[in-house]
Simulated assay, not measured.
Amino acid sequence: MLVKPMKDELTEIGFVELLTADDVDRAMKDAATGTTLVAINSANSCAAFAARPGAWLALSGDAKRPDRLLTVFDEQDIEATAQMRSYLEDIPPSHPSFVLFKDAELVYFLPRHRIEGVDAQMVASQLEGAFNEYGQ
């Protein structure tokens, strides 16, 4: 049985992987209008096993879909993750987690402690609520 790399689980559903600080800055400049969902991906967390399928469920449901989907992979793309965190004022590091920006303003944060211990459907439900509240 082949196991899909964890990074691929998000990029296969449309997330753009940001590998460097410059990638993050360019992507966040584009986030000046519309909605942008950022997934801070993680390999070292049981919560990640609900986060990635939860994102897939939320994006394949009836909720309004964000205009842009971005991801950084904590523990692997250190520079990109650090740069993304610079856009998350006053938010402590949390991975996995999801951040929703609207017109470059942080409007929703789903931290690890709200992902941990729940199933993918609950993660999806939380994300769909944010998409519907802040979507275009």
Results as ranks from 00 to 15, higher is better:
residue 120 A to G: 04
residue 77 D to H: 15
residue 84 M to L: 15
residue 64 K to C: 07
residue 86 S to G: 12
residue 82 A to F: 09
residue 85 R to A: 10
residue 124 A to R: 03
residue 90 D to I: 11
residue 108 Y to H: 01
residue 72 V to K: 06
residue 68 R to Q: 02
residue 61 G to I: 06
residue 64 K to G: 01
residue 62 D to M: 08
residue 66 P to H: 02
residue 76 Q to R: 06
residue 89 E to S: 03
residue 91 I to H: 08
residue 55 A to C: 02
residue 106 L to C: 11
residue 54 G to K: 01
residue 92 P to N: 12
residue 67 D to A: 00
residue 126 Q to K: 11
residue 124 A to G: 10
residue 104 A to V: 06
residue 114 R to Q: 15
residue 100 L to G: 05
residue 103 D to R: 06
residue 106 L to V: 12
residue 73 F to Q: 08
residue 125 S to F: 15
residue 127 L to K: 02
residue 60 S to Q: 12
residue 77 D to S: 12
residue 99 V to I: 14
residue 110 L to Q: 03
residue 78 I to N: 08
residue 125 S to D: 13
residue 46 C to R: 06
residue 99 V to E: 07
residue 124 A to V: 06
residue 56 W to C: 09
residue 113 H to T: 06
residue 119 D to M: 14
residue 55 A to M: 10
residue 119 D to K: 10
residue 47 A to C: 02
residue 70 L to A: 07
residue 84 M to Y: 05
residue 69 L to G: 00
residue 64 K to R: 14
residue 113 H to Y: 06
residue 77 D to N: 15
residue 103 D to W: 10
residue 102 K to P: 08
residue 80 A to D: 06
residue 63 A to I: 03
residue 76 Q to F: 08
residue 119 D to Q: 10
residue 61 G to D: 03
residue 64 K to N: 09
residue 46 C to V: 09
residue 51 A to Q: 01
residue 85 R to K: 14
residue 122 M to V: 12
residue 90 D to R: 11
residue 61 G to V: 02
residue 68 R to Y: 02
residue 72 V to H: 03
residue 74 D to Q: 10
residue 98 F to I: 04
residue 63 A to V: 03
residue 111 P to K: 11
residue 104 A to D: 13
residue 104 A to T: 07
residue 109 F to W: 14
residue 59 L to F: 07
residue 87 Y to T: 11
residue 119 D to R: 05
residue 126 Q to Y: 15
residue 91 I to G: 00
residue 69 L to N: 01
residue 84 M to P: 04
residue 84 M to F: 11
residue 69 L to Q: 00
residue 96 P to F: 01
residue 115 I to C: 07
residue 69 L to S: 12
residue 68 R to A: 02
residue 125 S to T: 10
residue 65 R to V: 02
residue 69 L to R: 03
residue 59 L to E: 10
residue 78 I to Q: 13
residue 70 L to I: 03
residue 57 L to K: 03
residue 73 F to D: 12
residue 57 L to A: 01
residue 107 V to Q: 08
residue 86 S to L: 09
residue 96 P to E: 00
residue 127 L to D: 01
residue 93 P to V: 12
residue 118 V to K: 05
residue 55 A to E: 08
residue 60 S to Y: 14
residue 100 L to T: 04
residue 91 I to E: 13
residue 93 P to L: 15
residue 47 A to D: 00
residue 73 F to A: 07
residue 50 A to Y: 06
residue 119 D to I: 04
